[in-house]
Design a protein around this nucleic acid. Structure first.
Length: 967
RNA sequence: GGGCGAUUAGCGCAGCGGUUAGCGCACUUCGCUCACACCGAAGGGGUCGCUGGUUCGAUUCCAGCAUCGCCCACCA
């Protein structure tokens, strides 16, 4: 349509009154029925635009943040579709991970027990517990496979809510392409990805200290770590040098780890203490001999400057333990309690006695016990001193993380392999971040990594590692020689499936095999969403058309997890960036500028605003925020969106309604209209096309840079101008009638106006379609009935409009608008109706501006109801300057008058001053007024001097003077 | 402690080395004009966070500071 020079419309009857109610239902159904957003999949990669949609957590609450960021992506999807791309816009659902595990547990009253076999007839005890918490001991155990089935069942229910929201919001997702992160295919890809990593040596297992959550009893990765303030106490403890010299004092917040102490550390540059290096001291209470060692990580200004190293109190302890080759003295078990067995390194009776009291207690209780004992023995100096410190937490946990050693699986991520790190940093440079400054977060994260990615979790729900281990003849598990399945068996569950060459009765038997019990971190699956969604390695050939992908939209909070890990996996597997662009949306803040989150209880459920303002209006609110910028939840903005939506309908109705019954002009009572740009003959009309060319060019440019907010602003501003100025200017001409005593317009003039209105409205509908899909398609339906959806219409081309403008500058429209505004101002100030005829008017302005206005004179006269004499007063630049000064001075005088009136009114209620004082005051006031006036004049003169020195291109006001109105 | 954003009218936001800093809401006044009263027109309102620097000229560039938000950091 755009490539031809003619736009042919197919008109339908118009409603008497327009409204946005009911449009969502109507168009949602229609789009679904007509497969408006279906991905074709037969086009070459270059003609496809593929989007790696973030899968929302299905168990999570729906909130405005979802609406916000998904709208941003949808705008891009719709824009690209109109640009002619075959848009691959799938939707995923994240049902892997702890939130879902907990939700399934509570909803069905079950828990996973991997020792159980799959029971095809398993029935959970509940189906919806209505929020009642089921205690762990009341949960019925089931196999992992049963649990996953329940999860899929529940996810399907949760999914309906999301799908309903997305549909109502008008997301142009192709619902034939959906996936679940715990689904069969995702599990297959996750296991396949892992096996590839394993084969290449990128995945490996290692016995090492790990961050451990005692509540969930699992290892957690660096990426899931979160620092929070946590109250604690400094305890000053006395260690006793074996050479009998005076006690060495240390500060600690973890006195309960005293039995795990393996050294004292001082900084070798610390003049106060470096002489202590090499000594041996006995620990308080336990009397274990430990060395005093030097290490630069010991901070002189913390505590006493001497620190005790335990295995393990914090991550510095791990460093010391590793670098100084200290003995491992673990006293903490996986459940966060003190090991019940008295360690062999504690040999004194006193020590063993104290330890026995602490054994099996939580760290909290153990701390109380040990502090009591220290008080008794006098080895604690003074009382504990309260402090706030930052402690590491698992982001979903409530207790500080502990550090334990255990066997875990790791995946290379540049934390230890510096070559990989530099490659990942390189990819970070290649990827286009929108906004660009988000790249810094990626770089900081990659540069800050100090371990590989710990991908194993000691949980039950998730994607299992596709691994078994041989059990030796003497019954030991041979971790060093994992058994892997062939890829065609994936996905498997090693706790129920059997490795090739073995039988089920060899499970956990000497000479048999045993399953890897651990599951993978959820990010180990999520990091493969491009592979999942584009069907990596499948025979359907989807990947060829869609991978590497074009766009990854996501939240800024998961750059270190999702974004980074996806790049990592893609780098390891394909040595390629998984997508070209990434868009990061900001947060939604509540009206008090607090981030909206469930925990704060300030979330707004999106269905409310959609009901109240309509989906288009809610989308408008989301679209007016730029990427990466936090946005205040503002229903005012939605009201404006609603206003725009209604305006679109009304303007279209007007444009299509004109001349319906008029057979003389191509828009006829027949249902067809042909808008041929060759019929746009009047300068004002051509100026509109020139303006459209600018709008299309600028909006397109902004959208190409993912700046949807800027594009919307450009389109919207111009659309309102079009309505308020152009439509008002040509209304009468378009009707073909005259309301003032001038000649009626000629057929050619009428045709020109009607054609321009049609072309412009057609253009605005296309431009607004990505933002307001419902109203634009509604209006498009009136205009192009049976010609398909606006969402499949081509995006406008600037060249089409600029060619049709035939070199008439857009300024003609601006100057005519200014003239009309000048007339309106006169009437407004006279407080009369805009219909009031003008008996006489003089337009004043610089020559160029007047000339531009004059070419549209007849429209200005019509719109302004100017019946009488019209004159032009050509002003020089100097005149304009004088006017600036004069008007500034007048304005200041008026302001002073108003001020004086106000003072006078106030004075009435006050006691009069004695005459002398009153005179003095009057004098001072007069002086002040004169000064203000002089100042205003001077400022205006300075400003006026600047006037006219600038570059051309700006519009210079046209003023109306000597105007008289008819009564 | 390091880093990244933000700070412009009562509110929500644009903008930008250069004529008079814009838009919307709200506010005031006017108008039931045949697309739209879910409307239209006109108007009032800002020392562009603070302090310096560069410049003929800074809201815009630079530095420092302040406030808010976020990210990272070994949390004795």
């Amino acid at each position: 349509m755009q490539d031809n020079s003619v736009i042919s419309a197919n008109l339908t009857p118009l409603p008497d009154h327009v409204g946005v109610e009911g449009l969502e239902d109507k168009w949602t159904k229609k789009w679904a029925a007509e497969k408006t957003y279906a991905f074709d999949g037969n086009r070459p990669r270059g003609q496809v635009y593929s989007i790696d949609t973030p899968p929302p957590t299905v168990s999570g609450a729906l909130h405005m943040g979802h609406v916000f960021s998904y709208t941003h992506t949808d705008i891009i999807a719709r824009y690209k579709r109109m640009r002619g791309y075959d848009v691959f816009y799938p939707m995923g659902f994240d049902d892997n991970g702890l939130p879902t595990e907990r939700r399934v547990q509570n909803y069905f009253g079950v828990r996973v027990d991997t020792s159980l076999k799959y029971d095809p007839n398993f029935k959970p005890p509940f189906h919806g517990t209505a929020g009642k918490k089921i205690e762990a001991r009341d949960q019925v155990p089931c196999s992992r496979k049963n649990f996953i089935e329940l999860c899929e069942q529940l996810a399907a229910e949760d999914e309906v809510k999301f799908r309903d929201l997305w549909t109502r919001l008008g997301l142009s997702v192709d619902w034939n392409h959906t996936y679940h992160t715990i689904g069969t295919f995702a599990r297959k890809i996750a296991q396949k990805g892992f096996l590839h990593n394993l084969a290449r040596g990128e995945a490996y297992q290692k016995e090492a200290p790990v961050l451990w959550d005692v509540t969930f009893q699992t290892a957690v990765a660096q990426a899931e770590l979160e620092d929070r303030p946590y109250p604690g106490f400094y305890h000053k403890l006395a260690f006793h040098p074996t050479d009998g010299s005076k006690d060495i004092l240390i500060d600690t917040t973890r006195p309960e780890l005293l039995p795990a102490c393996c050294a004292l550390i001082v900084n070798p540059n610390d003049e106060r203490f470096k002489h202590l290096i090499g000594k041996t001291v006995k620990t308080p209470l336990f009397g274990v001999e430990v060395p005093v060692l030097g290490h630069s990580a010991a901070q002189m200004d913390k505590g006493t400057g001497i620190v005790m190293c335990c295995t393990f109190g914090d991550r510095t302890d791990v460093q010391w333990w590793r670098e100084l080759k200290l003995p491992l003295r673990m006293i903490l078990t996986r459940n966060g309690r003190i090991d019940p067995t008295v360690p062999k390194w504690i040999t004194s009776d006193k020590g063993r006695e104290v330890y026995a009291k602490m054994a099996t207690k939580t760290t909290f209780t153990a701390r109380k016990i040990i502090v009591d004992e220290l008080r008794k023995s006098g080895e604690m100096i003074g009382e504990p001193v309260k402090t706030m410190r930052e402690a590491g937490f698992y982001e979903k946990g409530e207790k500080p993380l502990e550090i334990l050693t255990s066997r875990q699986w790791y995946l290379s991520n540049g934390g230890t392999d510096m070559k990989l790190r530099s490659q990942l940093l390189e990819r970070g440079k290649e990827l286009n971040f929108h906004p660009d400054f988000m790249r810094v977060r990626y770089n900081n994260w990659v540069k800050g990594l100090n371990t590989d990615w710990l991908i194993s979790r000691q949980r039950f729900f998730g994607v299992p590692f596709p691994l078994w281990y041989p059990v030796t003849e003497d019954g030991k598990t041979d971790f060093a020689h994992p058994i892997t399945p062939s890829e065609d068996r994936l996905p498997i569950d090693p706790t129920t499936d059997v490795p090739a060459g073995y039988t089920e009765d060899q499970r956990n038997q000497p000479g048999g095999f045993t399953a890897e019990q651990d599951i993978m971190d959820t990010w180990a699956t999520s990091s493969l969403t491009p592979q999942i969604v584009t069907h990596w390695g499948e025979k359907d050939g989807l990947a060829e058309h869609t991978f590497p992908m074009d766009l990854r939209p996501q939240g800024q909070d998961i750059i270190r997890t999702w974004l980074f890990s996806t790049i990592d996996r893609s780098e390891l597997e394909f040595h390629v960036l998984p997508w070209k662009d990434t868009t990061l949306s900001g947060w939604i803040l509540d009206p008090d500028h607090k981030k909206m989150s469930k925990s704060k209880g300030n979330v707004v459920v999106p269905t409310g605003p959609i009901d109240r303002y309509g989906a288009d209006a809610v989308r408008y609110w989301a679209a007016s925020a730029r990427l990466g910028m936090d946005s205040t939840y503002d229903e005012g903005q939605m009201k404006i969106g609603r206003r725009l939506a209604i305006k679109i309908l009304n303007a279209t109705k007007f444009v299509l309604g004109i001349g319906r019954e008029d057979e003389n002009y191509h828009v006829t009572k027949a249902a067809h209209a042909t808008w041929d740009p060759l019929n746009v003959t009047q300068p004002l009309d051509r100026a509109v096309l020139a303006r459209l060319a600018h709008v299309v060019r600028d909006a397109t440019n902004a959208l190409d840079h993912f700046d949807h907010a800027k594009a919307l602003n450009i389109i919207e501003t111009n659309f309102w101008n079009f309505c308020d100025n152009y439509i008002e200017l040509v209304k009468n001409r378009a009707y073909g009638t005259s309301t003032i005593s001038h000649t009626n317009p000629t057929e050619i003039q009428v045709l020109s106006a009607r054609t321009t209105l049609g072309i412009a409205m057609d253009c605005f509908l296309r431009l607004l379609a990505p933002y307001m899909p419902f109203v634009t398609d509604e209006a498009w339906g009136w205009m192009h009935a049976g010609q398909g959806s606006v969402h499949r219409a081509p995006w406008p081309k600037a060249s089409f409009y600029s060619a049709a403008a035939l070199k008439v500058p857009a300024e003609v429209l601006d100057q005519a608008s200014q003239a009309l505004a000048a007339v309106r101002k006169v009437k407004s100030e006279a407080k009369v109706s805009m219909k009031t005829p003008v008996a006489q008017i003089v337009f004043a302005g610089v020559k160029d501006a007047l000339n531009q206005m004059r070419v549209a004179m007849s429209d200005v006269l019509q719109a302004g109801q100017i019946e009488g004499k019209v004159n032009f007063h050509e002003l020089s630049i100097d005149d304009i300057r004088k006017r600036i000064v004069t008007s500034a001075v007048t304005a200041e005088k008026e302001r002073q008058e108003r001020e004086a009136e106000k003072q006078a009114r106030k004075a009435k209620n006050k006691k009069p001053l004695p005459p002398e004082q009153a005179a003095k005051k009057a004098e001072a006031m007069k002086k002040r007024r004169e000064e203000a006036l002089a100042q205003a004049r001077q400022k205006a003169e300075e400003e006026a001097d600047q006037f006219g020195h600038g570059e051309g291109g700006t519009t210079i006001p046209i003023l109306a003077e000597d105007t008289s109105l008819d009564d």
